[in-house]
Write a protein that binds this DNA or RNA. Structure first.
Lengths: 123, 123
DNA sequence: ACTAAACATGAACATATGCTCATATATCAA
DNA sequence: TTGATATATGAGCATATGTTCATGTTTAGT
């Protein structure tokens, strides 16, 4: 089919909603880069291991070793996941000698997680 | 390596943070089913197409046909994505003859999206 | 009853994801 | 300097994801 997004051709034969309204909705959509950035953030939060990491770090900062210990995973696995969270500005870190301490970069993230957690709860 | 999650063995040779604190953090983590459910919700929100759908439906309800038209995608592709959002209680729908109108199941979702959108913006 | 329209869904395929394993880098201790 | 520790990262592999294509289901119109 491959309809271009900008043209508003008929996909179905009959247009049930008025075209004006659809044009309005289209204008309200975020631009592509922003849409992708938003999806990326959600993707960074879409893994159980990474949720556990965030929950843990919302209590206190922890080093990689402690996180691996706490979650019963290898240092390598945790380190890979930390990189994803770091790259999405969800975590920050500080080095103290050989030890790297991770913590939440922003309380905002904690709020978003709580928000989804409560969404999950009352259903 | 394969350390068990419940045991708190040493992953690194030295335990830098006190064990008491780690035990406390562990207790504060959500249970496994809830963690997975939370990750699932985030996963449902982790695709650009689905973000566009949600943004559109946050303005007004739309039928599958309109959504396909609006986003320049095939009816099949949209339908598959709608199923994922439906199954995660993010969308609801009502039938009117052959037409199926989709809308947000909960304004909560819209708030979460806005929250992440603003998180993305000021960086 | 028959045809067509609106939507749903299973199979297939290309790509992405998360872990393991091996190894690299950086820092501390002796 | 040498060896050990804490962390990071690339390659590889099994599994998951998003789209297309073909087809099924339901409803409207004639």
């Amino acid at each position: 089919m491959n309809v271009e997004a900008g043209k508003l051709e008929d996909v179905c034969e009959i247009n049930f909603t008025d075209e004006e309204a659809i044009v309005l909705v289209r204008k309200s959509l975020s631009d592509e880069p922003k849409i992708h950035r938003i999806a990326e953030i959600f993707k960074a939060l879409s893994d159980p291991t990474r949720i556990r990491v965030i929950e843990a770090l919302s209590i206190r900062e922890l080093c990689v070793c402690d996180l691996a210990n706490l979650l019963g995973m290898t240092q390598s696995a945790i380190s890979h996941q930390l990189r994803i969270l770091r790259q999405n500005s969800i975590l920050k870190y500080r080095k103290e000698g050989r030890i790297v301490y991770y913590s939440l970069d922003d309380e905002h993230v904690s709020e978003i997680l709580d928000s989804v957690a409560s969404h999950v709860s009352h259903r």
